Simulated scan of single mutants.
Amino acid sequence: MEAVYIKTPLGIAKVIGDEDGVSVISVSDEGIVSVVIPVVLSDAVSQLNEYFEGKRSDFTFKFNPKGTDFQKKVWKGLLDIPYGKTRTYMEQSKILGNSKAIRAVATANGKNPLWIAIPCHRVIGTDGSLTGYAGGLWRKKWLLENENPTKQQNLF
């Protein structure tokens, strides 16, 4: 496994993977930015940078997240949420075939190992609130605002 640390507007992202794909993308408030980018991670780093520059709305590098079959099913469902859109935990549970599995779905979302690439930040509470985000609600808010196709201008 190779690792690289890159600077993003939301902190230092750690990307881990190998020739089978990227298995972890996480974010932290601290860290040392890598000078060298491993070849196996160059596509992921390039695409993450393009996302933060507003030039990319989806990711095509190879994913290789580790998790249970249920978690992988939930994470796969997250990939169907369009850029700039949100879905509630209830909607996500219904799409996955079990409206009573809201807590299990929320727990699986929280264990998403591919920050941003698998867009768990696009899942919100039934009342529209920003709930449950491992990276911190301020990051979730930033990501959703960044993806919003109609940017709100400040009036004052």
Rank of each mutant, 00 (worst) to 15 (best):
residue 1 M to W: 09
residue 2 E to S: 11
residue 10 L to G: 10
residue 13 A to C: 15
residue 15 V to C: 01
residue 15 V to A: 02
residue 15 V to W: 04
residue 17 G to S: 09
residue 18 D to T: 08
residue 19 E to A: 13
residue 20 D to I: 09
residue 22 V to R: 04
residue 23 S to G: 13
residue 27 V to F: 14
residue 31 G to L: 00
residue 33 V to D: 03
residue 34 S to V: 03
residue 34 S to Q: 07
residue 34 S to N: 07
residue 37 I to V: 15
residue 37 I to F: 09
residue 37 I to N: 10
residue 38 P to V: 13
residue 40 V to A: 12
residue 42 S to D: 14
residue 44 A to D: 12
residue 48 L to E: 00
residue 50 E to Y: 01
residue 50 E to S: 10
residue 52 F to H: 08
residue 52 F to A: 07
residue 53 E to T: 01
residue 53 E to V: 01
residue 55 K to S: 11
residue 66 K to N: 04
residue 67 G to P: 09
residue 67 G to T: 08
residue 69 D to K: 13
residue 70 F to M: 01
residue 70 F to S: 01
residue 70 F to V: 00
residue 70 F to P: 00
residue 71 Q to V: 01
residue 76 K to R: 13
residue 76 K to Y: 07
residue 77 G to V: 12
residue 79 L to C: 07
residue 79 L to R: 15
residue 84 G to S: 05
residue 84 G to M: 05
residue 85 K to H: 09
residue 85 K to Y: 08
residue 86 T to I: 14
residue 86 T to H: 11
residue 88 T to G: 02
residue 89 Y to K: 06
residue 90 M to P: 02
residue 91 E to S: 11
residue 91 E to L: 06
residue 92 Q to T: 09
residue 93 S to I: 07
residue 94 K to S: 04
residue 95 I to F: 13
residue 96 L to T: 03
residue 98 N to P: 03
residue 98 N to H: 06
residue 98 N to V: 02
residue 100 K to E: 13
residue 100 K to H: 12
residue 100 K to D: 12
residue 101 A to C: 00
residue 103 R to C: 00
residue 104 A to M: 09
residue 104 A to R: 12
residue 104 A to D: 11
residue 110 G to N: 13
residue 111 K to F: 10
residue 112 N to F: 01
residue 112 N to A: 00
residue 114 L to V: 14
residue 117 A to V: 14
residue 117 A to C: 05
residue 118 I to H: 03
residue 119 P to C: 02
residue 120 C to K: 11
residue 131 T to V: 14
residue 133 Y to I: 02
residue 133 Y to N: 08
residue 135 G to W: 03
residue 139 R to Y: 05
residue 141 K to F: 06
residue 141 K to C: 03
residue 142 W to G: 11
residue 142 W to F: 15
residue 145 E to R: 05
residue 145 E to S: 08
residue 146 N to D: 01
residue 147 E to H: 09
residue 148 N to L: 07
residue 149 P to D: 02
residue 149 P to R: 06
residue 150 T to Q: 11
residue 152 Q to E: 14
residue 153 Q to E: 14
residue 153 Q to N: 10
residue 154 N to T: 06
residue 154 N to Q: 12
residue 154 N to Y: 15
residue 155 L to T: 06
residue 155 L to I: 11
residue 156 F to M: 02
